[in-house]
Design a protein around this nucleic acid. Sequence first.
DNA 1: GTGAAAGCGCTAACAT
DNA 2: ATGTTAGCGCTTTCAC
Lengths: 342, 342
Amino acid sequence: MANRSRVTIREVAERVGVHPSTVSRVLNPATRGRITPEIAEKVTKAANDLGYTPNQAARGLRTNRTRTIGVLIPDITNPLFPPIIRGIEDALGESGYTAIIGNTDNLAVRETEAVSTMRARQIDGLVLATARRDDPLVSQCVADGLPLVLVNRTADADGVSSIVNDDALGIALAVSHLKDLGHTKIAHIAGPLELSTGEARQRSFLEALQKEGLSPADCPVAETNAFSEDEGLRTAAELFAEGLSFTAIVAANDLIALGAYEAIADIGLRCPEDISVTGFNDMPFVDRLSPPLTTIRIPHYELGREAARRLVELIETPDSSARATTLRPELIVRGSTASPDR
Amino acid sequence: MANRSRVTIREVAERVGVHPSTVSRVLNPATRGRITPEIAEKVTKAANDLGYTPNQAARGLRTNRTRTIGVLIPDITNPLFPPIIRGIEDALGESGYTAIIGNTDNLAVRETEAVSTMRARQIDGLVLATARRDDPLVSQCVADGLPLVLVNRTADADGVSSIVNDDALGIALAVSHLKDLGHTKIAHIAGPLELSTGEARQRSFLEALQKEGLSPADCPVAETNAFSEDEGLRTAAELFAEGLSFTAIVAANDLIALGAYEAIADIGLRCPEDISVTGFNDMPFVDRLSPPLTTIRIPHYELGREAARRLVELIETPDSSARATTLRPELIVRGSTASPDR
DNA sequence: GTGAAAGCGCTAACAT
DNA sequence: ATGTTAGCGCTTTCAC
């Protein structure tokens, strides 16, 4: 291969003795048919020999399509997101697209910033894993006609495509599992209600109580300000401080569940002997905790794949309409849930 | 903001009544000085009003610099890498660069593929977290004059910049800690020797034994084929099967240490009562295992930051020379190490 | 079926 | 200090 990627379509054309546009036509699958097979053959060979690689910047400038998409993630360091990103990148790769990732740390400023850098790079579309229920960025993108898919979290605005897990099913599985074990007093530590996941899981918890015939009066709900271990600890501790007598906690996600573990240990109780705990997400290594965490497994990788596939569809079929898709989660029973003491 | 990013430098120029090149000069910090402040002011204002964002594709085409760099990672899903990526992206952002990430799953084909897509996208340089000691891709990039920085792992080839942790120090800390606890028979489960980390840690283990005055005859070394839990389990089990009498295991990384945990449990022993274990990396959540893992903490985020800074330097100061930098790791003592039974 | 020519948005000589 | 001009590498009309 020559120094850097400096072989141009012109050099290939000269080598074969045809016009650059002929080379372009050969190399573009859509127009290859119009070229005499014999010439096409020679061009292809010359391109390979010279180690030609198309300059995407030039192509993008001409076609107004960069085959690059932006992905906004709260924090790649949160083990929830890498599988989603993998799914996105793997699916994009299959369609010849590439992703640019931006971490926003859940900061609106950083989101705006990231989107403008990405737009400067002429992204063809955007996958947001950062959506809040009421998210100006979402409305902005919709207004600007930028192809957009939300993943993991959705937004209240309609007309937006989204791929999320079925929170209602997940929570129902958790509550039903606890009820089957004999729990009747179950607490819920909810995530932030400005996120669709926080709100949906809380709503689903209340619905599940009703479906299972459990009394909401015995089943307290507390809200956190973030899906974090610290907030889980703080909120669980508050719940205990109120002197309520629940025997199980449905945490809105695994990190909150970890916080609950600590709160339980702090007041001298044991999980699962005294209090059962369920999480949500099935993060890596929660099977190695003590006790191993009973949780709801979300197909994160598939969430990412689907989001990318949907986005490519949106980009390449401009008249395709927005759809909200939901993927099925699964209950994973481990050691953090058991029958309540009686 | 207008529909998509369609405002061009020409429209800004027309709005102000100057030539497009003037606008270009105002917007480029390096040439802004040559423009009358008054005009510069007007141009800046107009650009803002119109919501102008430079088209990076066009700029890149012209300047042959895209301010995009490629990052090759074995697998973003391995918790080791996200902090490195964060470090890279944060540092790049400060210099106006953007990263494209590629996962290679340690497959040479995927590495080659990824690099050629990235080159088609005219990357200005490459950060490799995938280097093997003998890595054709590394030599290739060096030969092609593509600015390159290796991170986490290095390669044997010289003339390449790299940012890695000080494996020798890390292993020395682990061995010395175990010796201080009273261990004299310490096993090492090495990583793959074709990776610099595997080889360096094994070599450093032998050096540390000597420094501590321990007998290599009492300190078996076994090699794995991968830095994985499965390989750790398999190799530790083999070590036990040979009937050796060591009281501690220095694992080449945390995943291998996890495998060792299992092997220890499988033969009915306990950690740390019967066998102490140390890891390497301090992955997230190893503090939550039972027992919490004593390990070597590597400044992953800093590794990434440094790598990106170095790469930008290499790109912007072409005559800057290759350097191998090493960052200090730290011993984190937790519950998996204790004095041996006597 | 292929060549000619224009132009995507920008920057960098060169001119004034 | 600013305008003129050309061209980065590619695709896409429009001719023939």
